[in-house]
Amino acid sequence: MMKLFIGITFSLIMLLFTGCRTDYDISEVAPQDFLDSESHADHDHAPGEACTHEEVLLDEHVEDPHAGHDHAPGEPCNNEESIGEHVEDSHAGHNHAAGTRNHGTQWFFNQPWAAPFIWGKLFRDGAIFLTLGIVIFIITGRRRRK
């Protein structure tokens, strides 16, 4: 019985360890498309190139709505809305709508609520902790009765 307990506990901890090491931290394990959607903080458009990304800055972080985002003079930047109380220069078209993603906001989106790809792993971690808890409860109870 004790061997079984040690085996189960060891396996669960190893599983947790693997999970933690390889696939929990969002900044380490996010898929490319997740990273792409917020990797534009420093990108440059070539002159004449249209900006087609959905890029809107979270307004309290916006010092300069053009940060890292150089358009050729007079070039429109599509699909960008501004709600910018802070955005004085409206030529960029950064109309910030609540609930949309902006430049320089990795910190904001590297949180579990925004990263559905880790939800399954979160569920798995929960299940592992639950199993560990039950195993500890049963084994310590048996030891006490002895």
Binding site: P112, W113, P116, W119, L122, F123, D125, G126, A127, F129, L130, L132, G133, I134, I136, F137, T140
Partner: peptide
């Protein structure tokens, strides 16, 4: 909404784990 369910599940499971350690 599914996120809330998963997060609550995770939190409850971890609480059970901590309680079982406390009980041990």
């Amino acid at each position: 909404p599914v996120y809330f369910l998963i997060a609550i599940f995770y939190g409850l499971c971890y609480s059970i784990f901590m309680l079982s350690l406390a009980l041990a």
